[in-house]
Amino acid sequence: MKNKNILELCLAHGLGGLELFVASCYENFSSKATCKVVVAPGTKLDNYLENIDKFHIQRNKLFPFIPALQLAKYIDENDIDIVHFHWTRDIITAVLAKVLSKKKPKLVQSRHMRMTRFKDDFYHKWLYKNIDMMHAVTLQVKEQLEKFIPSEIRPKIGMVYLGVKASKIDEVKVAELKKQYNLKDEFIVGIVGRIEEGKGQYKVIEALYALKDLDIKVLIVGSAMDEEYLKTLQDKVSDLGLKDKVIFTGFTKDVDEYMQCFDVNILATENETFGLVVVEAMVNRVPMIATNKGGPLEIIEDGADGLLFDGSINDLAEKIELLYKNKDLKESISKAGYLKAREKFDWDKQLDKLYKAMI
């Protein structure tokens, strides 16, 4: 049997865990099969995938047949067997392309977001009837898909956690970062991700204010999706008198090296579906504090390999202070988190499971 030709589709404009997973799928699947990538031109994902051959189409909300026709032609020209898409808004483009193509490829959707309402209207029934498989990134998402998609049109559903690579650290880069940001013996709290209100950077800033008498600095790593919101955060830092304690680094590809500067990493999202940054921190031997909802509940055993907080600023401050004052707990969580990340969330193992399920 010939190797399958796989197409990774993602027209999203951001660069978070979903988009980085597209890059991971391409990298891993390319070692097993012929793999193509379709992205929107000029997006952060397009720029991130800088040295590979990509096909560009632009999402068209009003006239979805236009990008679907372009995609259908590309599918047929490249003999694509499987279209693997990730962004929920790409569902209409993918389904229409399948219908319009001669090849009629298998459609697989990785579902990175929660599903909260029934998909039993005519439109959604037509869409899901044309999808062959859905990949849920957590057990919670799998349960939601089974609950909200009617059984008679529900695609095959598989659950595979996302995975991370064991980090290969550039120690020279780490030293450069510490020098660049004048990091010495302070306790460094990090938060990595897009700068937007839902990611909760403001909670970390306010928790720092509650702990202002301790020797703590915060590194906020990520690009701003909304410059106005970034300015709001910067003004908050200034108003609270924390300008010498909070550093906004902007976007970086060197996430592992930044994490080597952290004493703890925070996920402050109110309800993260999975939380790739959680396992990224764990594999970097950085203790993790995450909100006690959604994906982190399936990753972290509270008090053993990470800490969970209730979403409030007071509880977040208490958890940070706990690690600040308890070096033994910090080290035990670091070690246990690393071992769990290697055993349960290994990049190669998880993507191999997904690949086998897809084909």
Rank of each mutant, 00 (worst) to 15 (best):
N60A: 07
C35D: 03
S31H: 08
N51G: 08
V37C: 04
F65V: 15
N60R: 12
P64G: 05
N47D: 08
R59Q: 07
A33H: 08
K32F: 13
C25R: 07
Q58H: 09
L15C: 14
N28S: 09
I57N: 00
S31E: 10
V39M: 04
L45S: 03
Y48G: 07
K73G: 10
S31F: 14
A68I: 08
K61G: 03
L45R: 02
L15F: 15
I57T: 08
F21D: 04
C25W: 01
Y48T: 02
N28T: 15
F65T: 13
V37K: 00
S24Y: 12
V37G: 00
K32R: 07
K54V: 13
L20V: 13
Q58P: 00
N28H: 08
V39K: 01
L49F: 14
L49C: 10
S30K: 14
C35S: 14
I57Q: 02
D53S: 11
L71V: 13
L45I: 13
V37D: 01
A40R: 04
D53R: 10
F29C: 05
I52E: 06
K44I: 08
V22K: 01
V37E: 02
V38F: 00
P41F: 08
G17F: 10
V22Q: 03
F55T: 09
A40S: 14
E50H: 11
C35T: 15
L69C: 08
A72C: 13
A33F: 06
G17N: 06
Y48M: 04
I57M: 06
D46I: 12
L69R: 14
G14K: 05
P67F: 15
L69G: 04
Y48E: 04
Q70L: 06
G14A: 10
S31Q: 11
Y26W: 11
L69V: 15
A40G: 06
G42N: 13
L20E: 12
D53M: 06
A23Y: 12
H56M: 07
K44Q: 05
P64E: 00
T43W: 04
Q58T: 15
S24K: 09
L62T: 00
C25H: 07
